[in-house]
Design a protein around this nucleic acid. Structure first.
Lengths: 343, 343
DNA sequence: ATGAAAGCGCTAACAC
DNA sequence: GTGTTAGCGCTTTCAT
C-alpha cells in the first residue's frame, strides 16, 4: 500500500505559523484558543484535506472509542436485530463496533476475546456460547477495568451489567398458556445447555407443569434449527400416547417441528398445540401462524450499548442495577388457539 | 478509566536483557531471531501479561488491519448471511470489521464513509442505498488508495471490484419460468430505484416478457416489506383482468403479497403464480412454499472479503477481474408449480 | 492565548 | 543474531 503523504497538524501549524499544540486544541474546539484562530485552523485543515490520526491520538489518550461485540452467530433474525440496535447507538455516540462470532465454540470465543482484548476495545458486549463458557477470558477485561455488558446468554456468576429477559417467567407463561388451552401432556423442546437461557426456560416450563399437575417432559435437540425441529417431530410421533402441547425454545425449531407434524397429518392446534420463542418474522408467516413469546432484540441491543457507552463516557455511576430485564409478551396465534381467543 | 500500568516490550527487554527490537521481532516470530531467544521472549511476555499495543504498531506501520463495511441495513436475512461470511474471512486473516448502516439514506451513507475514512480503515466493503448514492464520498478512498469492494448494490460506473449476481439473467429466468408455467399476464413488483439490482431485474423481466409476446407490467412499491407486499396484493386484486403471474424483487414482499392474495381467495399457483427473490428461509416455510431465486449471501460475503484482503495483503494483482458474478438458481416450489414439476 | 518539549509503544533502517 | 536510533502524529504538562 503506498499512501500519499498524509496531512498532519504540523502541516497546518507551518501553514498558519502556529504551533502544533495550538492546532490540536483548536481542532477539538478548546475555547482557550481564540475564536478567530480556531476558525482559521479549521478552514486551513479543510483546505489541506487533513484527517486526524486516531492511532496517534489513541496512543496518547489510551482510548479507542471502539466496542467489541462477541456473539454466537451473526445470522439469525434475533441477533441481527440486536446488532442493528447496538450499531445505531454506537454510531450516534461516536463509537465503532467490531463484531466477532464464536460459532458456539468456547475456544473461538476465547480467541475472539483475546483479539478484542489486544485491540484494546474500550468496552465489550457479549452473549455467551451454549457451552460452558470459560469466563477467565472475560476476567482479563475486568483486570484492566474494561467494562463488559452481557446480553441474552449471560454468565452464572457475574457482577457485570446484564441485559436480558425473564426466561423463567416467559417459559412459565408459555406452559400455562398451553395448559389453559386444555393441553394435559406437554413436551419442552430445547437444547442441553448450562446457559441461563435454556436452564431458566426449562425451569419455568417445569414449574408451570408442576403447578397444574399435568404431564411434562423435556426433549433435547442437537440444535434449534429447522431440521432439528423436524427430526424432533418424528420422535414425538413415535410416542404413545402422543403429547398434546409443545413448547419449543425458538421459533425456527418450532416451525420445523410444526410443519413436520402437520405433514404427517397431525392437526395443529387441535391435536397438538405448539408455541415457540422470539417472535421471529417466520412465526407470523408460517401456517398455521405460530404462537410465541416476543423478545425485543433491537431494544436489547440499544439498551446494552447505551449502558456500556454511558458508563464509558462517565455519564453513569458504575453502581447501577446489575440486571436489566426487558419485557416479553405472549403472542397468541393459531398454533395454540383452540378456544379461538382474540384473533 | 484508570488503567493499571501496561506492560510494554521495553519491560520484557529489561527483564531479559535484550533490546526492544529483538523483542518486537521475536514476538512476531521473525526467524532471524534465535529459536531459544524467541521462546524466552514469548514466555516472558506471557509471564508479564504483555499485550501488544496496536495503536503504536499501526502508527508506525500505517495500517489498521480493519476493514469498514457499509451496508443499507443489518437486519435482513440476506445481509446477515453476507456479514457472517465476511466476518469469518476477516477473523481468519487477522482483520477486524467495523460495520455501519446507512438505513437507505445517502446522507447517512456519506457520514459513515467519512467516519470510516477518518478511522483509516485499510479497505472498504460496501453495498449502496437504493437512492442515487453520491459516490464522491467513496472517491476519497480512491484518492488515498484505500481499496473498495462493492457487493450486491454497486455503482453504475466504477473500476472497483464488484461482487454480485447477474440480476438481468436471474429476472429473465424468473419471467420465463412463469411463462413456461402457462402465465400470460405478468406483473413485476419492485421498487423505483436507480440501483443496478432493481434496474437489471426489471430489464431482465421485460426482456423475458417481450421475447414471449405476453403481457408484462411493472408495479412499484414503497419498500420490499411484508406490508408493502400485502398492499400490492390489494392493488392487484382491483385489476381487471387479473394478472396470472407475479415476480417480486424479494421474498419478504412476495410472501406478504401471496398471503394476502390467498386470504382473499385467490388460488396459488393455479390462478396466480408467484416467484420471489433471495431464497430467504421464509420462502421454504410459507405455505404454499415460494418459488424463488437463490442468492448465496454468505458466499458473496466470503468472496468480497477475500478479494479485499488478498489485495490488501498483496497476494493478488490489482488487475483482477472487476466483476465477480455469483451463481443464482431458480428454485421451483409450490407457488409456481402448476405442472407439478420435480417435487 | 500560545509555544516548547516530552513521550505514548512500536517498527524498520541501518549498524555491528 | 542482536542493538541503536529515529521517528510515526498526537496530546499534554509546564512555561511564557
Amino acid at each position: 500500500m503506498s499512501f500519499e503523504k498524509e496531512v498532519t497538524i504540523y502541516d497546518i501549524a507551518r501553514e498558519l505559523n502556529l504551533s502544533a499544540s495550538t492546532i490540536s486544541r483548536a481542532l477539538k474546539g478548546n475555547t482557550v484558543i481564540n475564536k478567530t484562530t480556531r476558525d482559521r485552523v479549521v478552514a486551513c485543515s479543510e483546505k489541506l484535506g487533513y484527517r486526524s490520526n486516531s492511532f496517534a491520538s489513541n496512543l496518547r489518550r489510551k482510548r479507542t472509542y471502539t466496542i467489541g461485540v462477541i456473539i454466537p452467530r451473526l445470522d439469525s433474525n434475533f441477533m441481527s436485530s440486536c446488532l442493528a440496535g447496538m450499531e445505531e447507538v454506537a454510531n450516534e455516540k461516536g463509537y465503532n463496533m467490531i463484531i466477532s462470532q464464536s460459532h458456539e465454540s468456547v475456544k473461538k470465543e476465547a480467541e475472539n476475546a483475546k483479539t478484542m482484548f489486544d485491540s484494546r476495545v474500550d468496552g465489550v458486549i457479549a452473549s455467551l456460547t451454549i457451552e460452558d463458557s470459560q469466563l477467565e477470558y472475560f476476567n482479563r477485561f475486568k483486570d484492566k477495568k474494561v467494562p463488559i455488558v452481557f446480553f441474552d446468554r449471560i454468565p452464572t456468576q457475574t457482577n457485570s451489567v446484564c441485559v436480558l429477559i425473564d426466561n423463567f417467567q416467559a417459559a412459565y407463561q408459555a406452559a400455562k398458556h398451553l395448559i389453559d388451552q386444555g393441553c394435559q401432556h406437554l413436551i419442552h423442546l430445547t437444547i442441553d445447555s448450562k446457559s441461563n437461557v435454556y436452564v431458566d426456560r426449562k425451569a419455568g416450563f417445569e414449574s408451570g407443569v408442576k403447578e397444574s399437575g399435568c404431564l411434562g417432559e423435556v426433549m433435547y435437540l442437537d440444535s434449534l434449527s429447522l431440521e432439528s425441529g423436524s427430526d424432533a417431530a418424528n420422535k414425538i410421533l413415535k410416542m404413545s400416547p402422543l403429547p398434546d402441547g409443545i413448547f419449543v425454545s425458538n421459533d425456527l425449531a418450532a416451525v420445523g417441528c410444526m410443519l413436520e407434524l402437520r405433514a404427517k397429518g397431525i392437526k395443529i392446534p387441535e391435536t397438538i398445540s405448539i408455541i415457540g420463542f422470539n417472535n421471529d418474522p417466520i412465526s407470523m408467516i408460517v401456517s398455521p401462524q405460530l404462537t410465541t413469546i416476543s423478545y425485543p432484540g433491537r431494544e436489547a441491543g440499544i439498551l446494552a450499548a447505551n449502558c456500556l457507552i454511558d458508563f464509558l463516557d462517565g455519564d453513569r455511576e458504575p453502581s447501577v442495577s446489575r440486571r436489566l430485564l426487558l419485557e416479553t409478551n405472549l403472542i397468541v396465534r393459531e398454533s395454540t388457539n383452540r378456544k379461538k381467543i382474540g384473533n
